[in-house]
């Protein structure tokens, strides 16, 4: 019984690791596959996906790594076939500059609006202060008038 269990475990373990896995290659494969998009289930990376095509592509990438290809060569191989779409980090091109620059353009625009609003508020504060100062002079006059009147009436 125990022997059967053990051999079952061994079978599962060897199936899970796969016959042709390469302990050295796997971390590199996973790192690269995490940056590649699975085309079948588009919100998953190749590393996460168990779709059949994803498995095939991972095998292809593994074979290419074993053949000594660099990460860039493998990416070119995939973009030649599936387009930039497979890259989670799209390359800088004339068609993608807005994608890359967009957040910074928005940030700059927001900063510009913020500065303008703050300046305007500052200006209105200064005006209000001037008014208060002017109002303060009037207040003094009013106080002195108020202070005068009762005594005058009493007389």
């Amino acid at each position: 019984m125990r022997r059967v269990l053990l051999s079952c475990l061994w079978l599962i373990a060897s199936a899970a690791s796969g016959a042709d896995t390469d302990a050295e290659l796997e971390p590199r494969l996973n790192r690269l596959a995490a940056e590649l998009r699975c085309l079948v289930c588009q919100n998953q990376s190749l590393a996460d996906s168990n779709a059949e095509l994803a498995v095939d592509l991972k095998n292809q990438v593994r074979d290419m790594m074993r053949a000594g290809k660099s990460d860039d060569e493998i990416k070119t191989y995939l973009t030649d076939r599936y387009g930039d779409f497979v890259l989670y980090r799209p390359p800088m091109r004339t068609t993608t500059w807005l994608l890359w620059a967009g957040p910074f353009v928005l940030l700059a625009g927001g900063g510009f609006v913020l500065v303008r609003v703050l300046r305007r508020r500052q200006a209105s504060l200064v005006a209000a202060e001037a008014q208060v100062v002017a109002g303060g002079a009037n207040l003094d006059r009013a106080r002195s008038l108020l202070a005068e009147t009762p005594t005058d009436r009493r007389r």
Partner: peptide, 13 residues
């Protein structure tokens, strides 16, 4: 059979 040519043609569906 193994889908290699499919990959070359960018087949995904």
């Amino acid at each position: 059979g193994d889908g290699r040519v499919g990959i070359d043609y960018g087949v995904y569906g």
